[in-house]
Design a protein around this nucleic acid. Structure first.
Length: 632
DNA sequence: TAACTCGGACTTTCAAGAGT
DNA sequence: CTCTTGAAAGTCCGAGTTAT
């Protein structure tokens, strides 16, 4: 972090280029102030930087903030740093590897810089310097959005299909007479539409915009813009948003408060999805430290810092618990951190239901002790979906604290299985699926179930009958774990197959798959490992058609997710590679007449046809990306 | 006729290499 | 270190298109 801070905040660290960006552009703000004094220029003089709205429309910008055009159209006037003249990092950069360039394309996120590829990689203690970021990381290829017109000759044209988001998840196309929305505005909209349902800690949009008028939360807005931009094909602006986010997170002027923790959580998830796990973990550890220093985990924090605003108080409670959940998810999927916050005794209130948060009718919070008490008292009180999500991730923490964390004694496995089953059994009727009362997807319950199923697989796989060695190459989310033999073969196997099927079923909820948390990618990969292991095991031949459908669902989902998250692209490519290997191996086996012994003609024909079917699904996946990232 | 779109001329900026 | 060069990124004029 220090090297990054220095490289960003200390202009003297730039040996040959004194400024990060165009000299005419001040570098102190994420949305930079327009340069120069407009009065000193003649009316026809070209301004050094036009705002995004004017640039997009090819219109003259007066350079003030807000510029006259934005002022008259009441739209957000945003200036971003210029990348003019930049042609990639200097070739002889070895002389000063820490030097940061205007749009420093971070080095390839190959196997070294992309821990998702090598889950077993040991965490580095030295935070990555800014020089380790690649532009490829921040700009996934061909991001798509169902609400944005497909790319046309002029890439800016796509932004002329604006959309707005009703906070309940309903997207309404903005009526064509509404003022045009700037790219940053659209990124914020994309954040709220795609990302927010999965991590609803920050204030709802209207309230965060009001907050921005009173407080310095530019770092939070920058993080929201960057993550929102991942869902939109916005070109170079994304790299700028990313750099501004990273700079502001550690800028001296950024206040160390709950908003910073919120910004960090957003950045952590974005980085993790872009396969920058090292950097994500660095920020996670900083976010945890700051959250603990602030006392975010204590009951009084919300009221003390809520300014008498119940919604803001709720936002602080959500911030702690979302950090808690993200810490657990990162530990669970990569198995390189240890879910630090699990051991932290927090008495902060549990979050309320989403509709209550959005409407502002915030009930008095319930607490984790209430939750634990009701489990033992036997009374079935209903808690919020967020609370069940917290409870689900706590089970993951308990599982991770098992002695000998890889291959636990069966006794311990049984104990954790009881916790997982109890969590499911004690759900109130309204929470037994992922749909709310209106039949809409309840993303908090979705994640709660997702975590529960993932725990089941992680817990039982080592003792299961399925040999996962054919899938050893699938390490996109976590290192491969060899299967040990055990006495309870069939029971463990049934558990993981059932969980893998449940995960595949979760793909079918009728919402954009990219609006789920990006950690769903890793859970899909877990599920795919089970499906592929099952396919590789000849004795499961009887339900291959179901298997084919489940693999198809997983692959379709990974394909969709890869349009936003590079991590999904990697996982999908690895799943494809393994499937091809299994297919080749099956074909080789099938050449041996003994393979077909005892099977009817019909079974032989069906097996071969399902194999072909599975491969045709698999081939829809892109191949695993090269170790060295291609330029964006 | 006003408002909008966007091709493209022109300008600015940077990296790289040559020269001092 | 300065100067030159080539190319990418940026500004915004103005012709063409669309909406009112």
């Amino acid at each position: 972090m220090d090297s990054y801070l220095q490289s960003v905040s200390d202009p003297s660290s730039h040996s040959s280029s004194p400024e990060m960006y165009a000299p005419a552009v001040p570098q102190t703000a994420p949305t930079i102030s327009p340069p120069g004094n407009p009065d000193s220029r003649g009316p026809t003089q070209t301004v050094p930087a036009a705002c995004l709205a004017c640039r997009g429309k090819h219109l003259k910008c007066d350079g003030s903030n807000p510029c006259s055009r934005c002022l008259s159209s009441s739209s957000e006037c945003v200036y971003i740093a210029s990348r003019r003249g930049y042609k990639g990092p200097r070739k002889n950069s070895t002389a000063n590897p820490n030097k940061r360039h205007a749009s420093d394309s971070p080095p390839s996120a190959g196997s070294e810089s992309c821990p998702m590829l090598l889950g077993a990689q040991v965490r580095t203690t030295v935070p990555a310097s800014m020089a380790t970021f690649t532009r490829a990381m921040t700009i996934p290829d061909a991001p798509v959005s169902p609400f944005v017109a497909p790319p046309v000759t002029n890439s800016l044209q796509v932004f002329r299909t604006p959309y707005a988001q009703d906070i309940n998840g309903v997207v309404a196309t903005v009526n064509s007479q509404a003022p045009q929305r700037s790219i940053p505005e659209q990124c914020i909209d994309a954040f709220y539409f795609y990302f927010y349902p999965g991590h609803p800690a920050v204030l709802p949009k209207a309230h965060i915009m009001n907050m921005a008028k009173e407080r310095n939360i530019e770092h939070l807005l920058a993080a929201m813009r960057w993550v929102g931009s991942l869902y939109l094909p916005i070109g170079p602006a994304r790299a700028t948003f990313f750099e501004e986010t990273m700079r502001l997170l550690y800028a001296p002027e950024t206040p160390k408060d709950g908003f910073l923790v919120q910004a960090m959580i957003i950045a952590i998830i974005g980085l993790d999805g872009c396969r920058q796990n090292d950097k994500a973990r660095d920020i996670l550890s900083d976010a945890e430290r700051i959250a603990i220093e602030l006392g975010l985990y204590t009951r009084p924090y919300a009221t003390t810092h809520g300014c008498g605003n119940p919604r803001l108080e709720e936002s602080w409670r959500r911030t702690w618990w979302d950090l808690f959940v993200v810490d657990g998810m990162i530990a669970g999927v990569h198995r390189q951190t240890n879910f630090l916050l699990y051991d932290f005794t927090a008495d902060v209130g549990l979050p309320c239901e989403e509709h209550e948060y959005l409407s502002g009718k915030i009930p008095r919070p319930m607490y984790l002790e209430d939750f634990d008490d009701q489990l033992f008292s036997g009374e079935d009180r209903e808690f919020s979906s967020f609370a069940y999500r917290v409870a689900s991730i706590r089970n993951l923490g308990r599982m991770m604290r098992l002695p000998g964390s890889g291959f636990s004694p069966e006794e311990s496995v049984d104990r954790i299985e009881s916790l997982l089953s109890n969590w499911r059994l004690h759900l109130p009727k309204s929470k037994r699926d992922c749909l709310n009362k209106d039949g809409q997807l309840d993303e908090m319950m979705f994640q709660a179930f997702m975590i529960n199923h993932a725990c089941t697989i992680i817990l039982h796989q080592p003792l299961s009958q399925l040999d996962s060695s054919p899938t050893r190459d699938v390490t996109a989310c976590a290192p491969h774990r060899a299967v040990q033999s055990g006495d309870n073969f069939n029971l463990h196997t049934r558990h993981i197959i059932s969980a893998a099927c449940s995960i595949s079923k979760m793909v079918t909820y009728n919402v954009p798959i990219t609006s789920h948390t990006h950690f769903f990618t890793c859970v899909l990969t877990l599920s795919s490992i089970v499906h592929l292991s099952k396919w590789a095991a000849v004795y499961f031949i009887q339900d291959e058609e179901d298997l084919r459908q489940q693999i198809r669902l997983n692959i379709g989902a990974l394909n969709k997710l890869s349009s936003v998250w590079r991590a999904a692209e990697t996982a999908g490519g690895q799943v494809k590679g393994v499937a091809q290997e299994i297919y080749r191996s099956r074909k080789a086996q099938q050449n041996n007449p003994q393979f077909w012994e005892g099977l009817t003609h019909e079974q032989i024909r069906s097996t071969m046809s399902v194999d072909e079917g599975i491969m045709s699904e698999i081939n829809l996946l892109p191949s695993a990306p090269e170790q060295v990232m291609p330029p964006p």
